[in-house]
């Protein structure tokens, strides 16, 4: 149904279709191999408890490391071979696999006369940040990092507000002032609900 509704392609190589190298899968395969090696090295350093049976704390990690390495190799091989055209939405993948006809039909069939006209969610105004998706991800990540750096120094409300505004901008918020106000209300409510209501400590203004 994603094709019918005109959703953009999902991330990564799927965009290209055909059978090029599947880069995300290849990266994941490398990660699996690294994890397998790290786990094996770690398992070899685990001391078996004295006088215990043959199954100590290292047996299961060894087995998991083996599975990681095997899956890493297989996934790597599969990703190098590339993938045939995949549905843009992973959600559709399941549909296509199990019931290809359903996916095809919903994608091909032109919409019937819409009686109830769909309305866009949110406002029609253009977003403040008009940048590439990669930059949006960077803004999002910056908000997360800033939050972690600020929470113990500037206090919870400031840190959470910075995060809220950064994420909202990354997701295309059109009005800065409104976002700041909504974020301030939310973070203040959370702060007082936690500290007064639940009696859990959150860092005060200016840190702990």
């Amino acid at each position: 149904m994603s094709t019918a509704s005109g959703l953009p392609d999902a991330v990564g190589s799927r965009r290209h279709g055909g059978s090029r190298v599947d880069v995300p899968s290849l990266a994941l395969a490398v990660l699996l191999l690294v994890m397998g090696v790290v786990l094996a090295v770690d398992a070899s350093g685990i001391e078996a408890p004295r006088g215990g049976g043959s199954v100590g704390p290292a047996a299961f990690p060894w087995a998991v490391a083996g599975v990681l390495l095997v899956l890493g190799v297989v996934l790597g091989a599969v990703s190098l071979r590339g993938r045939p055209d995949q549905p843009a939405d992973p959600a559709d993948a399941g549909v296509q696999e199990l019931w290809p006809e359903a996916a095809r039909r919903s994608a091909d069939a032109p919409d019937d006369e819409p009686v109830a006209e769909p309305v866009p969610v949110g406002e029609e105004r253009p977003p403040l940040l008009r940048v590439r998706p990669a930059v949006r991800v960077a803004v999002f990540a910056a908000g997360l990092i800033a939050h972690a750096l600020l929470v113990n120094t500037a206090g919870y409300v400031v840190a959470a507000l910075v995060l809220f505004v950064a994420v909202a901008l990354a997701f295309g918020a059109p009005r800065l002032v409104r976002v700041v106000l909504v974020g301030l209300v939310l973070t203040l409510v959370i702060f007082y609900a936690f500290t007064v209501g639940l009696g859990l400590a959150l860092p005060d203004l200016g840190g702990r």
Partner: peptide
């Protein structure tokens, strides 16, 4: 954008 900002918080 409000939804995801809230989720992040």
């Amino acid at each position: 954008y409000y939804l995801y900002a809230g989720i992040a918080v």
